[in-house]
């Protein structure tokens, strides 16, 4: 059953009681929360995701987003994210409850799921091949990931590229795409299909909102993809879209440094990382206009399948 089939009152009842059981990619999550923005965010952004009975026996992560007790709750209301009762972060202002759930879920995956090499990168797929988009914050990685999804690419993840250590394939983890600051309006203007939820202001990342993943990406969340490209996007005002080949050795080093768990995997991290680099084409990609960027990616995908 899909989350959108749950009546809103039932969703709120589950969130406040036993928790909503939902599946994202290979993981099951039980979410509890009394915060209205969390219920609203789930309704708006997770409609296509599988939910089961709140009494489903097993979940990978048991998380909650709730207001801490104490006097503060009347002065400057805050919210806490907790994994099975233990909060890994300091509380945030109540207005940031939904982004905090998203960040918290990313934290759960990146600190536990060592069956994958976890790279900090967006990743999208077309014609069976995945384009991995690692880049420092502010480079336009999420904006480009969002635009590609809205242009017919399948969203695998906007933050966490999961490389299955056994198969070397990219395991999808489609979730709402996090958009920051100007990206929010850029994506709204880019596509009429885009649904972006309410903005949370003054977060550590500035203003943040989330883009709903398209139905096809969620429906195919169990279908892995073969890595095809590693592309480092860089948005530059007025720049023409330009792909430049990039050294594989440097790309490897960057991925190793920007993987969440490369050092935890020991020699196997090196094996998985180098197998990934061996089978992908590596590029730097500069762009100024999203439509041009998407067109360039289309040519790449067409070349590959020709």
């Amino acid at each position: 059953m899909k989350l959108l089939q749950l009546p809103p009152a039932e969703l709120r009842r589950q969130l406040a009681g036993p928790g909503v059981w939902l599946r994202t990619g290979p993981f099951s999550v039980r979410v509890r929360s009394h915060v209205p923005h969390v219920a609203e965010g789930l309704t708006q952004l997770y409609g296509q995701f599988e939910v089961r009975s709140p009494h489903e026996a097993f979940a990978d992560f048991h998380v909650s987003v709730d207001r801490p007790r104490g006097l503060r709750r009347w002065l400057r209301p805050q919210v806490n994210f907790a994994v099975d009762g233990v909060p890994p972060f300091k509380p945030l202002p109540l207005d940031q409850a939904f982004p905090m759930l998203e960040w918290g879920l990313n934290w759960c995956v990146s600190t536990r799921a060592h069956q994958y090499l976890i790279i900090h990168a967006g990743v999208v797929e077309k014609n069976g091949r995945a384009a991995i988009l690692p880049a420092p914050p502010g480079s336009g990685k999420s904006t480009l990931t969002a635009a590609l999804m809205l242009s017919g690419w399948r969203l695998l993840s906007d933050e966490l590229t999961l490389i299955d250590r056994r198969t070397g394939l990219v395991q999808p983890l489609p979730r709402p795409v996090s958009l920051k600051n100007q990206s929010i309006d850029i994506i709204r203007a880019f596509s009429p299909d885009a649904f972006v939820n309410r903005e949370s202001r003054d977060t550590v990342k500035g203003t943040v909102a989330h883009l709903r993943p398209l139905r096809d990406s969620v429906r195919r969340q169990h279908e892995p993809a073969r890595p095809g490209w590693v592309i480092f996007p860089r948005w530059q005002a007025g720049a023409a879209a330009r792909l430049t080949p990039r050294s594989k050795a440097q790309t490897f080093m960057f991925l190793a440094e920007n993987a969440f768990n490369y050092s935890h995997l020991g020699a196997d991290g090196f094996r998985v990382g180098s197998a990934l680099i061996d089978q992908t084409a590596c590029y730097d990609f500069e762009y100024g206009i999203l439509d041009e960027a998407v067109a360039q990616f289309e040519r790449l995908a067409a070349e590959g399948s020709a």
């Binding site: 099951s28 097993f58 990978d60 536990r112 799921a113 060592h114 069956q115 050092s263 935890h264 995997l265 020991g266 196997d268």
Partner: peptide
């Protein structure tokens, strides 16, 4: 160990093995 629980053990084992090194 049932299939849905298995990765938790394997991932913890990966971490412990790496710590020993």
């Amino acid at each position: 160990i049932p299939a849905p629980a298995r990765w938790h053990f394997e991932a913890a084992d990966t971490l412990a093995a790496r710590q020993q090194v």
